[in-house]
């Protein structure tokens, strides 16, 4: 995958980070607005795809650390399962942190309780999983082409 022109790279430098900001916004406010864990995670994972398209595979593969996304995936899934199991004295997936509407004002955790926390956890998991899938599939393309891979050159370098 060759890097694209300087225009695309500059736009990527300027605006790619706002994808992460928007994704985190969708993810954190999933319990109020449309969106949630899956959608926010998918938006954040778009960042990696955008970097791959704009900068080419070799440069991204040398900079990006897979273990970070591994960690995201594991922590997200574990937090999700643990929150589900913590409600087990009543039922699986019992919302043990939720408060009724009358007394839900204030507090660090919103009144919906585990819904908000699980949304963030699933968002982490989706971010890690989709980013890893994109990176691994790209690496697979390079692997199957063999050694006669042409050097990655863009339009201007």
């Amino acid at each position: 995958m060759n890097p694209l022109s300087v225009v695309v790279r500059t736009v990527c430098d300027l605006f790619a980070w706002f994808m992460i900001v928007f994704g985190v916004n969708v993810l954190l406010h999933g319990y109020v607005t449309p969106g949630g864990g899956f959608q926010g995670g998918a938006i954040i994972a778009t960042f990696i795809a955008f970097l791959l398209v704009a900068y080419g595979g070799r440069r991204v593969a040398s900079r990006v650390n897979d273990r970070l996304f591994d960690l995201f995936e594991e922590v997200g899934l574990l937090v999700f399962f643990i929150l589900a199991f913590l409600g087990l004295p009543v039922t699986f997936f019992f919302n043990f942190l939720a408060k009724p509407l009358a007394e839900s004002a204030g507090g660090f955790i919103p009144g919906v309780g585990t819904v908000a926390l699980m949304s963030v956890a699933v968002g982490l998991e989706v971010t890690g999983a989709l980013s890893l899938i994109i990176l691994t599939m790209h690496r697979g393309i390079r692997m199957f082409r063999g050694e006669d891979l042409e050097p990655e050159t863009g339009h201007d370098r």
Partner: peptide, 30 residues
């Protein structure tokens, strides 16, 4: 449970078991 967004409340609370399945699907794909 003071859920302003009932869709999210269903996805992550009332039918959270489905969401475990979705997460498992993604994990299996990875």
């Amino acid at each position: 449970i003071s859920a302003e967004n009932i869709v999210t409340a269903i996805v992550f609370d009332y039918r959270g078991f489905d969401t475990i399945g979705e997460a498992a699907v993604l994990f299996t794909a990875l």
